[in-house]
Design a protein around this nucleic acid. Structure first.
Lengths: 184, 184, 184, 184
DNA sequence: CATGAATGAGTCTTCATTCAT
DNA sequence: GATGAATGAAGACTCATTCAT
């Protein structure tokens, strides 16, 4: 199994460039240069640029969803799983910053196409929160809870990207506390 | 032919199209068609497409900042002003959905250029939260409070855009409560 | 009689700009700005830009031809008239540098159209040289004489424009001597 | 499809068109059509039209300078080398009429940019004439000698282009005699 | 006579995609 | 699988000209 076949390197380079400069502002030539091949070679692996765009969204969206779902459905008390989900969310962001930024960018530019790709990461969060409501841990409307959960974590990551927030020891725990206080 | 407010109509059309499709994916021709003029006419009002892009960011960024600042510095108790700021944030979003989405998009695509345009809306929020910390209403770190405040409100708006959340009576009040609980 | 009617000012401004930057690289707006009016106003005086281009060539070509012809046909000995013609040529250049440069530029860009505008300045010089041949003052072929006469004077002017040659006392006389020595 | 020498063919076509119609009045499409390719293909070989313009000036300016310098610095008596230089000048013109016209046109349109490209052909002529002055073959000011040398040869070529002068046997010799008589 | 917004036909340039090698 | 020249369809921008005021 080639871990770093050309196709994978094209996807990695595209993700990085798309998330830094935007999709339209990244050319096939840019990608080829980053990978160290020529334009024509890209087309050995992808029929169109759009295919790269979609494959990236699909694969990282799934990866994120799976990671979250695993936390949501893990063993343990509700608050434990809540913490694990917070951790899963933020560690995905910190480990794949380009991917997370790309997923957001895709939402902004392709709002109408997003539905094609389900399940989406948010579905895992909804699962967690719905259970919290049923179990009585959460007392606010699902929509508000979802907005706060996702919005807060997203912003924690984005602020850390701009340097305004340094991810320190105890971050996950602190965020969990804030969220649970707000939602209950 | 004298047309009134062509410049304003160009800005409005651009904002709508940019926020729906993206900046690069909106052409001057698209804008012209939307306004009902020809491409060349755009250039009597703006030297380049980039000028439209920047003027839109600048003007709506200022408008948002001013609206928030007015709430932050209004008369009344801290919790009153906190509520007013939540209201100001969300009503700006609901009244100018294209503008809010555009400001976010601009952040994603032009992260490095954002600093040229200060003060930014977030500065008004920071002012509110710093005071809350000094007065003892807020007990968490400024960065976390900022992430939660901005992230939650942003997501409330974005979820309402997708139809997942309906802005109802009492929304502002509810959100304020959630935030104050979390932060204290 | 308006000495500086708008039409004249348009012609003057056009001549200056055309000779400095080129015809195509000078826009109607450039001309309008130079004159202190707006684009539309130009069209009160000229139907097209091409009309300005042609009128300038025609009028300065004639002016130059007339000045040269007057010297060629003046009273006096042949060598006197020869000197006068040298003087006429160079003083036209020094007094109307833009016009002379423009005439040359027009020749380069519109070689095929030049014939429409006869008589041309060179025709006056030919008249002088043909007489010189008939009278025995000139012993070389007409074409060579013409090339040397026109070429030398043109270059004297052009070198003075670049600052390499300073037009001093005695220039005309010196040039006449050189030319007459060469041609006889 | 591998085509050989496309870059050279673009330069040749550009030179021809520029010298016939002017730089601004020649479009990239004109050039592409002349070469038998499409507009986009030009940009694989040159980043901008301006690059073609400058590369043409630079390469022909150098070629001309080198040819002249070789004659100026050749073995033989001064008058021999003077003749060789006359020959070099005129044969360059007759063999590369487009190039010579283009160099002149460039001087007219870009007077201010010309200095970037040294050494210029005239520098070779100056070298010849300065030596002539030092050796006593030339008794007139350098500037006048330069004006006459360059001006005469240029005009000989230009008149031959319009058909007014036919380059015959003995032309070079005759011109040398005229010049040496005038300058001494 | 003058203004200046608007038109519309270009012009330069970009770039996803194709294809001969 | 890879190369890179070429295509062709846009896209941003320019500018001579028109025209309502």
């Amino acid at each position: 199994m080639k871990r770093h076949g050309t196709k994978e390197r094209i996807l990695e380079a595209s993700l990085r460039l798309f998330s830094e400069k935007g999709i339209r502002e990244t050319t096939i030539k840019d990608i080829a240069k980053e990978v160290g091949i020529t334009e024509g070679a890209i087309y050995r692996h992808f029929a169109t640029k759009e295919d790269i765009v979609k494959e990236l969204f699909k694969s990282y969206s799934e990866k994120f969803y799976n990671k979250l779902t695993q936390a949501v459905r893990s063993k343990g008390s509700y608050t434990d799983r809540f913490l694990k989900t917070v951790e899963a969310f933020l560690s995905f962001c910190f480990e794949n910053p380009s991917a997370f930024k790309y997923l957001n960018l895709f939402h902004y530019l392709r709002a109408r196409n997003v539905k094609e790709f389900s399940p989406l990461p948010k579905d895992a969060v909804v699962e967690l929160l719905e259970e919290g409501i049923k179990e009585g841990f959460i007392k606010v409307r699902l929509e508000y809870a979802l907005a706060m959960f996702v919005g807060t974590l997203e912003r924690v990551f984005l602020l850390s990207e701009t340097g305004l927030l340094k991810p320190e020891e105890g971050l996950y725990e602190e965020i969990r506390l804030m969220l649970l206080k707000a939602l209950s």
